[in-house]
Structure formats: C-alpha cells, structure tokens
Design a binder for these strands. Structure first.
Lengths: 187, 187
DNA sequence: AACAAGTCTTGACATTAATCACAAATAAAA
DNA sequence: TTTTATTTGTGATTAATGTCAAGACTTGTT
C-alpha cells in the first residue's frame, strides 16, 4: 500500500519521516464489509475514521424512522459522529459501509496526544476543520438557493463517481428530496 | 470595558497576562452604525470579526436578487465571509449591521502570526472551527428532518433574544421560508 | 399630530414536492 | 437459469409552501 495517510496530510503540511512515524503510531487499521456498521445510534463513539478505501454513509434516523443521509464518506475523507466523538456522548447517527471499506482510526485520547505532540498536526486539523465548516456552509446555502434539480447537478459535477456507486434513493436522501422526485428530475 | 475577548477565549483555554497581551495586539477595534456594511459582495475580505456588541446579518444574494440569511452574528460570535477570507478571494456574501456594532478584528496575516506565535490560540481556533462545523451540520440536519414550525421553535429556544431584535422577515429568510409562511405558523 | 417607512397578517391562487400505488427494469442469490 | 430482492420510473392524489395582492398595524421622524 502506498501511504495514503501521508499523502493526504502532505497536501496540507509537509512532514519529516520521523514526524510521520510519530503520527502514524497514533492510528490503528480496521477493515469492514459492506453493510457493516462502524457506528450505531446509541453506541459510544470511540473513533474518528480516515478512509483508505471504500464508501460509507453517515445517517440520522428521525422520530418517524425516516433515514436522512448527512454525508457520504469516500477515500481520503474523515468521518465520524463528531459531536458524539468530541463530547464523548452516545451516537445520534450511524455510520455504515456501502462497500467493503478500510480505515485508519484514532481515539479522542490519541487525537489529543497527536495535537499536543505535533504542532504541525494541530495545524492540519485546524485546516481540515475550517474546510469542513466552509463545506457545510456551502451546503446550507445550496439548499436555500437551489431547487432539487440544481442541487442534483451540483452533486453530480462535484462527485461524479458517487452515481456509479450508490442507489439513487440514497442520493435523494442526501439531497433532501423523495426518491420519486429525484427520479422525475431527469425527464 | 470589561475584556470580552479575554473572557471569550478563556472559556476554552486559560492565558497568562503576557499571553493575552500578545493576543490582544493582533486585533484592532472598529465601530459601525446600523445599516453599515462590514463586507459587501465583490469586496476583498480583509478581516475576520469578533463581535463585542451589536448584531449583524451574513447574507447571500442569489441570481434573482433574493437575499438568504446565512447567519446572524451577535455578541461573542466570530463572523466573516470565511471562504473569501481564508482564500483571499472576493466576497460572495455581505455582512451588514442590524444594530450599532463594535468589533475586534484581524487580517489573515495577523491570524497566521497569532497561530504561529501561540499554540494556545491555535488550539482555540481549532476548537472554534470544530464547533462551527458541528453547528452547521446540526443546521443541515434540522433543515432535513424538521418542518418550518419546528425549525422556528428550535431557533426561538436557542436564541430567544433574536426575536426581540430582528424583523420576522429576516428570521424567515434564515429558516428558508417565505415571510408569509412564517407568519402563518403561529396560528 | 401627521406622515412616511417599515412590518406583519391574511386571503386567493399557483406551484412544487410528498405520498401512495403499482409496474418495469435491474441486480443478486439460489 | 430461475427465482427473489432491490432499484427505478410513472400516474394520481394530497399536502405544503410560494407568490401576489391588499390592508392593518408599528415605529420613527418631522
């Protein structure tokens, strides 16, 4: 395996070999099969996950058992129920494999040690957090300013591979429309 | 003036007097009157603002000139067009006073110096960025799972003071519904 | 007090999308 | 291949929300 994690970090900040070794030992590897859950609602959220390969959905289930896709997570993404992870509370969302998936992950304790031991990683996480915030803000704005068809096209443009990998009903759930409405957009 | 900035930072991380002095000198103070713009669409975004007192709206104007409120910013909040600020591109949003407002602000350059010179401030900004991301994610989820009436009530519960301070038409714009629909919710 | 500007409510109607129902198409499993 | 499950598409209906229009109410100003 080429080192996906190192490549990923070094898009933002360069590390010496020693620094990277220090980083690397805070992670452990895990593998999951399609349909397995990394997080289930009500669980403790032990880990934050960096996805080496595969595809996941982060899902919130509302009072009437309807599922809403908060995000898809693919190669090179970080994912978890971050509220629960950071506050060490029970998960309100689930994280489930849509494909066989390999991840690197760390606990909150390891995350803190990483931040304390490496100012560069602190910078890295700050950059990631800022980017995540901006992406969420853009999504809010897109839901306010665009109709379902436009949102569909934006998503298609941004992540074309998604559309070969997940059923349209999940895309609909991510976009916040019914699958029937999504189906009618094409025509 | 009691020191709002110090109080604000020390909710997250304690500073020595010297450390705080270092932090403080990276900021400058500005005052604005109601209806004044801190940022206008198309401008360079020179500053990130910490609000000492007052109230602002962050607004995106779409192609058909319709305004969408991305957020309200009140005392103790940070606000800017952060995408434009971090990438040093032109503003796509505007930031306008709804009340007379006093802010502390810094440039991107000062922000970087602050991060480089103070690991504690780096931690502080990381915590803020994480919190901002989580808040945005909650808002996305709320727009997917709740109807306008529920979203209105959530907002009312979270920021009761807003409702004495801004017209309902702006609340409607923030919630993503027309002012007429919002008006009909009460009944 | 009188006016102006801004704000809020309500009705009528149009539009959009959700829901329900079912059939067709596709993919997965036996 | 045959069977079974999953996914997708489409019509009919219903519900929610937007839009347009008018008027009432507030607030601030002169």
């Amino acid at each position: 395996m080429q080192d996906k994690l190192r490549e990923h970090i070094e898009k933002i900040i360069l590390l010496t070999d020693d620094e990277y070794l220090f980083v690397k030992e805070h992670f452990i590897t895990k593998k999951f099969k399609k349909h397995q859950f990394l997080i289930q609602e009500g669980d403790d959220v032990k880990y934050s996950y960096f996805i080496i390969s595969g595809l996941l959905k982060l899902v919130y289930t509302d009072d009437s058992e309807k599922q809403h896709i908060v995000s898809f997570a693919m190669e090179d993404w970080w994912e978890s129920d971050y509220y629960a992870f950071f506050t060490q509370t029970k998960a309100t969302m689930s994280l489930e494999c849509l494909e066989d998936t390999e991840v690197l992950c760390f606990t909150l304790e390891q995350y803190k040690k990483l931040c304390d031991g490496s100012p560069k990683m602190l910078r890295f996480f700050l950059e990631k957090a800022n980017f995540g915030f901006l992406a969420s803000q853009r999504r809010i704005l897109s839901s306010m300013t665009s109709n379902p068809k436009e949102r569909y096209e934006q998503l298609l443009k941004q992540y074309p591979s998604l559309f070969q990998r997940v059923p349209k009903s999940l895309i609909a759930s991510y976009l916040g429309v019914s699958r029937e409405t999504l189906s009618r957009l094409s025509s």
